[in-house]
């Protein structure tokens, strides 16, 4: 699946092409337009912040980009491939190989070492046992935590835990890093460190889409999408502040 995506890629084509994307929820007699006719294109190497108040549709947009949910209408082409019509197993493969997730609450397995946590996506990618540790160590190295590989999450600070989670998101070399409020559980200084890490990764070429409601976080991105009531109301490029 992932190799198909990469073969289909041409440097000029957009990584994400979303067209009239719509998602409704039925709550009793009412229909909630969680996402209403959103069209947007994101190119490779962009660092995009998605902003909006709660209920604005930014989380729904994020879930659709992350292939965790399916749209009711519209198109979503990831790296040139239409993913709206894929089966559940095919979506799992896309999530596994093309997308890396970073969450507000880290979502590390508490009883596993940092290394084992980072190896987890490779378990589902069918990577052989021998290669797993090597690749996981390389990913931990890229977030500066190689020497903490044997530590459990409880032995790590919040910032370190989030960096382990970022290493986990990177380990299958995804096309896209999706971060949902990644600094929401961290203090200001640590948040800045994490944003500096995102900027470093972005400079190395990885596309990042980050959901946040904090303007202080969004200013490190080079493009900001504003959502309100399920609609995309603003799409602005900006000169990002350099975190470190």
């Amino acid at each position: 699946m992932a190799s198909d995506l990469r073969e289909a890629a041409s440097p000029s084509s957009p990584l994400i092409a979303v067209e009239a994307l719509t998602r409704h929820y039925r709550m009793g007699p009412q229909t909630v337009h969680a996402l209403d006719d959103v069209t947007v294109t994101i190119r490779r190497g962009e660092f995009v912040a998605v902003m909006g108040p709660s209920g604005s549709g930014k989380s729904t947009f994020m879930n659709l980009l992350g292939c965790l949910d399916r749209p009711d209408a519209g198109h979503y082409r990831l790296d040139g491939q239409e993913v709206a019509g894929l089966t559940s197993d095919e979506l799992a493969a896309v999530r596994n190989r093309a997308i890396g997730f970073v969450f507000q609450s880290f979502n590390l397995l508490p009883r596993q070492t940092a290394l084992a946590n980072v190896m987890l996506p490779m378990v589902y990618a069918g990577v052989g046992h021998a290669a797993r540790a090597e690749r996981a160590l390389a990913a931990l190295d890229s977030v500066g935590l190689r020497e903490r590989a044997g530590h459990r999450p409880t032995q790590l600070s919040g910032g370190q835990q989030q960096r382990v989670a970022i290493a986990r998101a990177l380990v299958n070399a995804p096309l896209l890093l999706l971060a949902d409020e990644p600094t929401g559980a961290l203090d200001t200084a640590t948040s800045r460190e994490i944003m500096a890490l995102f900027q470093r990764l972005n400079r190395r070429g990885i596309t990042i889409v980050l959901v946040t409601h904090e303007p202080e976080v969004a200013r490190f991105a080079d493009r900001v999408l504003q959502f309100r009531d399920g609609r995309l109301i603003d799409d602005a490029r900006q000169e990002p502040e350099v975190a470190a």
């Binding site: 559940s88 999530r95 589902y124």
Partner: peptide, 16 residues
């Protein structure tokens, strides 16, 4: 439940 959600997000199929 959260562990299952995470595993699904990082690419586990339902069969896994």
């Amino acid at each position: 439940t959260r562990e299952i959600g995470l595993r699904l997000a990082i690419g586990a199929r339902r069969r896994d």
